[in-house]
Structure formats: structure tokens, C-alpha cells
Amino acid sequence: MRTRALAVRIIRQFLRDKRTMALLFLAPLLVLTLMHFVFNGQTVKPDVGVAGIPSAVTAKVDPETARIVDYPDRKEAEEDLRDGKLDAVISIENGKPAILLEGTDPSMAKAVQLLLQKTLQADMLTVQPQISYLYGDEDLSSFDSFGPVLIGFFSFFFVFLLAGVSFLRERTTGTLERLLATPIRRSEVVAGYLLGFGLFTLAQATLIAWFSIRVLGIYMAGSVWLVLLINLLLTLTALTLGTLLSSYAGTEFQIIQFIPLVIVPQVFFSGLFNLEAMNPWLQKLSYVMPLYYGADAMRDIMLRGKGLAGIQVDIYVLLGFSVLFALLNVAALKKQRTI
């Protein structure tokens, strides 16, 4: 009953605080929408200057993949490259094709090289391989690919921040001390927080998932229910971790200081970036990061269409994190009251 009273109080406070509600519910949608427009799958289209290349060759270039500008003279093309009007200049030097790249944008450089390869090979290759996809399809955009990670990340990040700040406030305003002068158990305090926040985080997870799938049309191969389940587990982990760390912070600003320490590294290890190039020892760090398991499960569900059996390890690990952090929370409250 005390747990319920605490949960009801948290929900009431939440509903009063319109700004925080907006942060929790609207901010993730806004950022996801922006991400969607930035990475909506349009491939980069380089501007390529050519000098001394036969028009028979340039004509073979698909105008969808690049804009070709013919220059009578290489010097003139290089001038425009320097002015930022072109991304590359292709010319013939010593009888061989030479390519000068602008060089500051690796994705643009790769696109030009790919274009060159395709154009040169078009004649040689007589049998085109048949391409098919195990998961996804040829329309899969970058947004589709890392969207599942983002969805998990937002649930994690905002809940971490809110739970941390509100628990801290409870301590700094003296209400936690007052609370602990009542017969409430430490475990009931933690359970009350889980219940009160859990309700909001469930609503948040539902909204984010619905918005991404229905409105933004993100690629979705698996079950929405599993997406919600993983989101809920991630937010529970964020909630318990946030409240736990808040007992080591004295001000709201110190909570913010946990972001580069606790949140940002998790983003790097969550699968947004390919880790294969990293030192294998460093790669193992991802095993202690909740977001890694959440992101892994989200990708398995949304991109690979896996079911419960395929993601059960992630589920157990996330549950384990939540339970561990919750127990540590109960222990950390000992600092406030020894019983």
C-alpha cells in the first residue's frame, strides 16, 4: 500500500509538470523525425568534373547517381574543385584515368570511387550476379538500420535523466528524509519509484514505437509487442541506474555530468557504429553496457524479425541489470537510514 501511495504521488507530480511531460514524450519524437529526414535513404550524389574523358564513357553514367560536368581543361576543373563546386575531378594522365578527390568527406569520396568502378566495369562484366537479401531489402535506408537502436536509446536516455533528477530532488528538498521518518521500507521506496515511473516509461515506449513504425514508416519485420517489451526493460534499467547514480550526485548539474560518463560510451557500444575495427579487448566492454543488449534485441526484432526465442538472452541480461541496480538502490538508501 505504501508502494502504491508513492507511485500515485509520483504520477501526480508528473502530470503537474507539463515541461517534463513534453521532454519525455515530445522530445524523442522530434529528434527521431529529424534523424528520419537526415538519413532517409537518399544516397549521396557527387558532383564530378571530367576533363578529356570521351563522351561515350560519361554517357554511361546514370544521371541519378552523379552529376557530370565536362571541362575542356583539367586546370579549370581543379579550380572549381577548390571553390567547393565539385566533389571530384576525373581526367586522363599518362594514358591512365586519374581521379582527384576533394577529400574532406569520406562518404563522398567512396561514392565517387564506386561510380568510377561501376562505369569502368560495365563493359567487362557480361553476367550480372543476382542479388537477394537475407534480412531487409534494397530499400533499407540508414535510418531503418540504426532506427531500432535510436528508439531504445531515447527510452534509456530520457528516463535516466528524469529518474536521476527527481530522486535527487527528493533528497535535496528533504522530502526523502521525511519519507524515511515514516514506516516505509527502503525496498518500498524503490518499488514505488519503479511503479510510478514504469507507467510513464511504458507510455513513452509505446508512443515512440508507434510513431516510428506508423508515422515515420521505419522498417519493421518483427512483433510490436516485443519492441515494447524491450523498451520497457531498457527503461527499467535506466530508471534503476539513474536513481542509483543520483545518490552520488549533489546537484542537478552533477547528474548532467553523468551523461558523458555513462550515456555516451553506451551509445558508441550500442551498434550505431561498427565495432569490428576496434581492439577486441575494448569490444568486450560492451558486455557491461545495458544499451548494447537493448539495441541488439531491437535490431533482431525490427530488422531480422526474430521472435522471443531469438532475443531471450538480451531479455535475461536486461532483467538482470534492473534487478541488480534496484537491489543496489535499496542498499544505497542505507546512507539515508540504516534500517
Binding site: 501511495a5 508513492l6 528533504g174
Partner: peptide, 28 residues
Amino acid sequence: YMAQSDALYQELTARENLRFFASLYGLA
């Protein structure tokens, strides 16, 4: 117990504060 510094939930009404603490003491 009444602490020296008021430990009240500012966003809530007096009634909501009272109900919360009353519930913690087992009143319903």
C-alpha cells in the same frame, strides 16, 4: 515528526501531500 525545514511536495496540493503521508502511516 516535523522537520525543521519543510519537507513538502511543492507541486502537489496540501490535500495530496496529506493523503500521501497518511497512506504511508497506513490510513485509508
